[in-house]
């Protein structure tokens, strides 16, 4: 029995190592490539540790592109959009879960149905409206549409449906207003859900590509994903033709490291938060 256990344990750890290696290999390879001189990159031999080590790719990519600016833009937009979304969604989600008002269910159904509408269809009307307001190519143009995000409201409502209402009832007996109850009773209870919505919103804003591609033109507001996409093409719209892999990988690594580090530091909250999307009803 014991021997069998040991064998199982060893098998488990071997499998674990294989999984970890497979998942991390592309990222490590990206870093390895980014540290090689261009001539060593296209090699028939696999060298995980660069034979000749260089930071030249990073220097070139930082010289050629305002990556730090793009990163700051991404951080700022994602940060503000997250605050906005969490506030809006916590308010609306609470009302949808706990309050009775005319048209509630049909309204909620309409909101959820928007999950199935490809964003691309909304882009042109949105752009035209923003152009009329003269806010294209500004942070506002990137932030405002995030406030209309559907998943957050959905998750908040699910969460509020699942928690007992005793505390709220008690507060109401004490004569507290709805806003007061929401602020001092409900929100403290809702921290896990708020974290989840915050993480999901931050990630999806940080990663969003299509709208910023259309809505931004200048490096002053351009976000990281849009900037990174430019490495792909050095001559007119090359398809399937990455040039200068070393530089591309250096740029990709610079873009990848902040979220990876953030994730590793916060991984417990992250994973707990993400698993909340499967909220109990």
């Amino acid at each position: 029995m014991k021997a069998q256990n040991t064998i199982q344990t060893i098998a488990w750890y071997i499998t674990l190592i294989i999984i970890v290696v497979l998942m991390l290999a592309p990222i490590l390879w990206m870093i390895s490539t980014s540290l090689k001189p261009e001539l060593d990159i296209l090699s028939n031999e696999i060298h995980w540790i660069p034979e000749r080590f260089t930071l030249e790719n990073y220097q070139k990519v930082l010289d050629a592109h305002p990556i730090l600016r793009w990163t700051w833009n991404s951080l700022f937009v994602a940060g503000v959009a997250t605050l906005l979304t969490v506030t809006l969604d916590a308010l609306a989600g609470y009302a949808f879960a706990r309050m009775d008002f005319r048209g509630r269910d049909i309204l909620f159904a309409i909101i959820v149905s928007m999950l199935f509408v490809p964003l691309q269809i909304t882009v042109v009307p949105l752009f035209l409206a923003f152009a009329k307001m003269e806010i294209t190519d500004t942070y506002l143009a990137l932030i405002l549409p995030i406030g209309a995000n559907v998943t957050g409201v959905f998750l908040m409502r699910q969460f509020f449906l699942g928690i007992p209402s005793d505390l709220e009832d008690a507060a109401r007996v004490d004569g507290a207003s709805a806003l007061r109850i929401w602020w001092s009773v409900v929100l403290p209870l809702a921290r896990p859900a708020l974290t989840t919505v915050a993480i999901l919103t931050f990630l999806s804003t940080w990663n969003s590509f299509f709208w910023p591609l259309i809505a931004t033109r200048s490096d002053a507001v351009r976000t990281l994903p849009v900037g990174i996409a430019q490495f792909l093409s050095v001559r007119p719209g090359l398809t399937q033709n990455v040039q200068a892999y070393g530089m591309s990988m250096a740029g990709a690594a610079l873009a990848a490291l902040p979220p990876i580090i953030l994730f590793i530091i916060l991984q417990r909250n992250f994973i707990k938060g993400i698993s909340m999307t499967g909220l109990k009803g």
Binding site: S43, V242, M249, A256, F270, I274
Partner: peptide
């Protein structure tokens, strides 16, 4: 293990695209 499996999910699509274009390169891709 969980962290390793989840890490790719935090990367942005364009990084994933650039990275895997290189991974899947025919002659020198990993």
């Amino acid at each position: 293990g969980r962290v390793a499996v989840f890490i790719p999910y935090v990367l942005m699509s364009t990084v994933v695209g650039v990275l895997w274009t290189w991974m899947l390169e025919r002659d020198f891709g990993l």
